[in-house]
Amino acid sequence: MHRKKNFLTYSSLLLTGTLMLGGCQSTEVKRVDSNQEIALSDNWNAKDSQLVAEAMVNDMLTFPWVNDHLKNHSSKPAIIVQSVRNKSHQHITVDTFINDLKRAILRTGQADFVANSSIRAEIREERKDQELNASIETQNEMGQEQGADYALSGTINSFVDEQGGQRVTFYQVDLRLIDMTSNREVWNGQKKIQKHQKRSRFGF
């Protein structure tokens, strides 16, 4: 009788435990601020992109090339982003990083951006279309584009050191700004990020 009771007690406990564990697998989704960092891993994330872009642009604008340009020209410097190559160990959407760079520069109001070659080609097609279809007052003329004064390019590199459940990831972003008239490198910036991830070997 006693054994029977014990058996029933253990069975009930096991069943309750199983049900409780089953209940842990529900999905929950909530809206969060896009500026809030949610780091689920040591991967390059949106916050890294934003912080690196802001820090590098702040550094870039402290160099003398901006004042030198304003002394010699009547307009703000125009920059074109040539390429930022991802040479890291991780798939990084370089376009979003470039957009963060552009936003950071435009926010300072000290420089302008010139569209890159593929966008320029699209705009030229649009202007051609305007010549045929838009009224004369609203047409935009060909040959009035602003040329870029400076070209921005760079790379994203990374190193990884991993042992057991620990991993240290080091990202380095290198950017340079070239004067398109003289080919002088007027700015060279570097920003490093290091992340440490620990994983547990056992979990429930």
Partner: peptide
């Protein structure tokens, strides 16, 4: 994710 062994 399999690095972490599920005891259960």
């Amino acid at each position: 994710s399999f690095y972490t062994i599920s005891v259960s």
